[in-house]
Amino acid sequence: MEADAGLDRRLERIEEIVRLLDSDSLGLDEALALFEEGVGHIRRAREVLARTELRVEELIGEEGEEVREFEPAGDGDGDDAEDG
């Protein structure tokens, strides 16, 4: 599985590994390899969860063709009122 695999794919794979390990049709080497793989996925997923800062980008331009880091508008902006 690639390094930036989504959390859902990681979780699915970990669950699959647990199921495999619960079965008794595995060779010991195979079981150990699966265990290591599962632990790796857990570690990577934890790394993802450890991020704390939200990354927000804004699409701008007529067709939304440009992307820039989103800068929240200052408080008291006139448009806030109408947008409730």
């Binding site: 993802v48 969860l49 991020r51 704390t52 800062e53 939200l54 990354r55 927000v56 980008e57 804004e58 699409l59 939304g64 992307v67 989103f70």
Partner: peptide, 8 residues
């Protein structure tokens, strides 16, 4: 917070 948000 790991999610990336794209605002239009």
């Amino acid at each position: 917070p790991w999610v990336r948000v794209l605002v239009r």
